[in-house]
Amino acid sequence: DVEPGKFYKGVVTRIEKYGASINLNEQVRGLLRPRDMISLRLENLNVGDEIIVQAIDVRPEKREIDFKYIP
């Protein structure tokens, strides 16, 4: 289970102007929005990149997770 405040290694699977889709595994994925990137710009991400993200909002009833990137 993903817990708010914990850090996870994820893989960038899609990049859109509203954010990047991050997969932690086949069943768990979430969104990294541009506003939640401290020192990383969306255009510097590539599909397949592995990054460390922090879960900031977990809504299991909607199967949604928001991530934050902290270098």
Rank of each mutant, 00 (worst) to 15 (best):
F7K: 04
G5M: 07
D66I: 14
V2I: 15
P4T: 12
E43M: 08
N44F: 10
G5N: 07
Y69W: 08
R29H: 13
V2W: 07
G19I: 05
V28F: 10
N46S: 14
P60A: 11
R35I: 08
I51F: 04
Y69R: 03
N44S: 12
D1M: 14
D1P: 11
I52Q: 03
S21C: 15
L32Q: 02
I22T: 01
E16N: 15
V47C: 05
Y69C: 06
Y8H: 00
S21G: 05
L42W: 07
N46Y: 09
L40V: 07
L31R: 05
L42H: 02
I22C: 04
S21N: 08
K17Q: 11
Q54W: 11
D36I: 06
V53R: 00
R33K: 08
L24C: 07
D49I: 06
S39Q: 14
N23K: 15
Y69M: 06
L45M: 06
R33F: 04
E16A: 13
R14A: 13
N44I: 05
G10S: 02
V28D: 05
V58A: 05
G30K: 01
K17H: 12
G10W: 08
L31V: 09
L31Y: 07
S21M: 15
V2H: 04
Q27A: 12
R59S: 07
L32T: 01
R63F: 13
I51S: 00
N46Q: 14
G19A: 09
N44T: 09
K62T: 13
P60W: 12
L42T: 03
P4Y: 08
R33T: 03
E61G: 13
K9N: 05
S39L: 12
M37S: 04
L40R: 06
D36H: 12
V11H: 05
I56P: 01
L42M: 08
E64M: 11
R29D: 06
E26Y: 11
K68L: 09
I56M: 12
K17Y: 13
V28Y: 11
N23T: 15
L45K: 01
Q54G: 03
V58C: 09
E64W: 13
Y18K: 11
V58F: 07
D66S: 14
Q27M: 13
S21V: 15
P34T: 09
L32R: 01
D1Q: 13
R29N: 10
I51K: 00
V53P: 00
D36F: 08
Q54V: 12
Y18H: 14
E43S: 11
R29W: 15
G30H: 03
Q54S: 05
N46R: 15
F67Q: 02
R29M: 14
I38C: 13
N25D: 09
K17G: 09
E50H: 14
R33P: 02
V58Y: 10
